[in-house]
Nucleic acid binder design. Structure first.
Lengths: 345, 345
DNA sequence: ATTAGCACTCTCATGCCGAGAGTGCTAATT
DNA sequence: AATTAGCACTCTCGGCATGAGAGTGCTAAT
């Protein structure tokens, strides 16, 4: 059913999408032939347009308006007509420079990635901090603060750092704490949650408490509930003409702001249109009422099974898929490099 | 010049502000007497209204509309007419419960604070992570990752944790690293940036590198450039009728999104109307073009000189100052408690 | 000092009109 | 059989007039 498109129809669909993405207006047959100096008349274009409309790829807002791509139209484009473009070398350089000139660690790179994505796609960007899917013990540190308060710092394989506070019954010296930590570091080398369960229950009360705390921390890893989501360019979305009526804009941005929704969106990494690992979610796909006029483009980065995060973009449905996908893929590549370089294993 | 207000005028100003805050519309003399069963006629109210208008506290959008408070009006209200209200006990309990039932540490509390502020004020909220103004060394940890890669974890007095990566020329064992760390922990106890400068330059190359890294980290503290700003409720702002024209909304939200602007806003903790430590910035105060129709209410929390952050709210100018200020003050109090309880000193 | 009453002003919703844009269809052309 | 010129038709959009309604300011009476 989808293979009925002639070459000319494919061309026209592409051009209409492109033009609509430029102007945000319905595309007229006349404007098309003029803009792209097509070797045919507007009447021919109109004929093809009716064909494409009947196939469900185009839509006209009202009887006497131009055509606008439908969700189906975009899907067809993304899955059949998108030639894998590469970013121009100069852009690539500009971007990578920004990353490599401030080699300060993840907490700098992630917001930077969000900012780069936002400015290059003129849309809202989403970047989540990388997490290890299986939490593995790397290093423990116990630091005395006040009499019975202990700061516990836990480093996981991958480099994730988690901290927690312990309240003891009786004061313990820093020396004693360091010894306990040293023992655990020895005992728990590369331990996962399962390994920990096999350890004998320690007799000492402090040891028990530490072990429990470690287990708590490990079990929390992977739950995306932490505040580690970087957003940027939210106001870009507001600038798009299709969000002139507030309600649209509001519901779109709500998706990014409300953690449950966002988590849902990210975790339900729907395989709608898969292009080299980049997921394209067009117009809410029926499930996402709030995203009716939006598209979300996501991909993963990092080292599979060890330390991975998600990054992507939310924009109007007429976002430039080609360019955006390339940008996302490129930034994801950069982050993957940086993560694997600085990863703790 | 400001003391000319009669008691009745004060009452009317208060009521007008209150009514306008409810409806977001110009307030009519008629509506006022009806709504509040005033013991006077609408004509009297009109007379007072013209008086207040001449004094610059009210404004009428056009000849035949009701009155709207001016910036000056709000300022007068905030600095003269706001009786220090307390939050109802039930709200206080609801809020504190949320904090104390998930005692997971700052990274949980800060987004929670942002969320609470946003939902209780129906505006956008801002919470910055607390920083120590003077960075003081507490504890150092060096962890071997790969051959020549070292993860450095630095704990500051106050509890702030900073991490960095060192690249060594030659591989060093974890044992050796631990010894180096132990030496520094001994040597740098409670050291500040100034104290560090007085230390003799170490002969060992590794020691040199570590010392440099510590100094780097310490000197970065206090710069608010880190990504540690929690925002919430941005879409609340979009819901307000005064932001029906996108541009207003956009420029308001841009202030929160663009770090330089936000930093500027927070650091220029302007003492416009100071109410028990809460700063009220009404209508951009001439300096902030983007905030012409907004008000920003901020306060600090934490332990002065040791670990302090900022929190507050951005909303439409007709935000309910009394309630919002109480809420902010209450949440700030909570955070202060939590911070000082878990602070590392 | 307050208030009733009234004239005056301004906004806002409504309906109407004409211009313009863009299509669909038919008939002519290649 | 595909393409195209030509034209009638439809729909949107901006401008304009109109009338109702809301709210004020002022004057005169209490």
């Amino acid at each position: 059913m989808t293979k009925e498109l002639t070459e000319r129809q494919k061309l026209l669909l592409t051009l209409i999408v492109h033009e609509h993405s430029r102007t945000a207006l319905p595309v007229a047959s006349n404007a098309l032939v003029r803009q792209y100096s097509l070797p045919m008349s507007s009447a021919t274009v109109r004929n093809e347009m009716t064909a494409l409309t009947e196939m469900g790829y185009l839509r006209q807002p009202h009887t006497s308006a131009g055509r606008v791509p439908t969700e189906e139209g975009y899907r067809y484009l993304v899955s059949h007509l998108l030639n894998p473009t590469t970013l121009p070398a100069t852009t690539r350089n500009t971007i990578s420079h920004q990353f490599y000139q401030s080699p300060q660690g993840l907490d700098q790179w992630l917001p930077l990635a969000a900012s780069v994505l936002a400015s290059h796609s003129q849309a809202a960007s989403i970047v989540t901090a990388p997490h290890s899917e299986r939490a593995t013990f790397k290093h423990l540190e116990l630091i005395a603060t006040r009499a019975t308060q202990v700061l516990m710092v836990l480093v996981l394989v991958g480099g994730e750092i988690r901290q927690a506070f312990l309240s003891l019954d009786t004061p313990v010296s820093q020396e004693a704490l360091s010894q306990v930590a040293a023992r655990f570091n020895d005992l728990c080398r590369s331990a996962t949650l399962e390994t920990l369960d096999k350890l004998p229950v320690p007799s000492d009360s402090l040891d028990q408490q530490v072990l429990r705390a470690i287990r708590d921390q490990l079990s929390q890893v992977g739950k995306l509930v932490t505040g580690e989501v970087y957003l940027d360019g939210l106001t870009n979305v507001l600038a798009e003409p299709e969000f002139a009526e507030m309600d649209m804009a509001r519901s779109a941005l709500r998706v990014l702001e409300e953690r449950p929704l966002l988590n849902d969106l990210i975790s339900r990494t729907i395989m709608t249109e898969k292009v080299g690992g980049v997921q394209v979610l067009i117009g809410g796909e029926g499930t996402w009422e709030e995203l009716r006029d939006c598209s979300v483009i996501l991909t993963r980065y990092g080292v599979p099974d060890l330390l991975t995060g998600t990054l992507g973009v939310l924009g109007p449905m007429r976002i430039s898929y080609g360019r955006t996908i390339s940008t996302i893929r490129f930034v994801a590549g950069l982050l993957t490099d940086l993560v694997s370089q600085t990863m703790v294993d």
